[in-house]
């Protein structure tokens, strides 16, 4: 099932957008990132370590750094790069179709 997030241009490069579960109907909040490579990636929004929103994190290259305790996650694979988190973040598929973001939930 896919959810229409809206125009891709609403997320500038290096930024992120929070897609609440209540809007998308997904089982959890999802963060969509516009990475340095120009592509869009989506991860679970809540940091696997403690309650913090990855969409508030610092996006650099193809990684996001959690705003609270600085664990970083690979945007492509969701793999955790450093402590304190030890679990990977779940990834979601996101595509740009005719300038609009489609999130696979």
């Amino acid at each position: 099932m896919s959810y229409q997030v809206g125009p891709a241009e609403q997320i500038s490069r290096g930024d992120a957008l929070l897609v609440p579960a209540s809007d998308s109907g997904a089982s959890e909040d999802i963060a969509i990132f516009h990475a340095a490579d120009g592509n869009f990636y989506a991860l679970q929004d809540e940091c696997p370590h403690e309650i913090a929103s990855l969409s508030d994190g610092w996006v650099e290259g193809c990684e996001v750094e959690c705003p609270l305790h600085a664990s970083t996650f690979d945007l492509k694979s969701g793999k955790v790069q450093c402590l304190p988190a030890t679990d990977d973040a779940r990834t979601y598929k996101v595509a740009v179709v005719d300038g609009n973001l489609e999130l696979d939930i």
């Binding site: 508030d56 994190g57 610092w58 750094e65 705003p67 600085a70």
Partner: peptide
């Protein structure tokens, strides 16, 4: 205090 992304910047 509660600086959000300020520390990273």
């Amino acid at each position: 205090v509660d600086g959000g992304l300020m520390s990273k910047a």
